[in-house]
């Protein structure tokens, strides 16, 4: 699965970058998005859900970042 690394990217740039990356994919494709703890992991998932993408899971990495699994929604 592709991983979009958005560590160190602040809100709302991280969301916009995730959105642009998802635009390159087909509906139903899955990606992992690597996010910082804090604002990023609170805001980005909710915004992606609002855009019609499907959130599948969240897991914390050993380094304390978060991997969000997303399935691209309808265009």
């Amino acid at each position: 699965m592709t991983t979009i690394d958005l560590r160190g990217v602040s809100c709302p740039t991280n969301f916009v970058k995730a959105k642009l990356a998802l635009e390159e994919l087909e509906t139903g494709d899955r990606v992992e998005i690597l996010l910082d703890d804090g604002e990023a992991v609170k805001n980005v998932p909710r915004s992606l859900k609002g855009e019609g993408h499907k959130l599948l899971g969240l897991r914390e990495t050993a380094e304390g970042h978060y991997l969000l699994e997303v399935e691209k929604g309808e265009e």
Partner: peptide, 12 residues
């Protein structure tokens, strides 16, 4: 619930 944990992470 699919046990993703997003709610717990988001609950300030």
């Amino acid at each position: 619930c699919i046990s993703c944990g997003l709610c717990a992470k988001n609950c300030a």
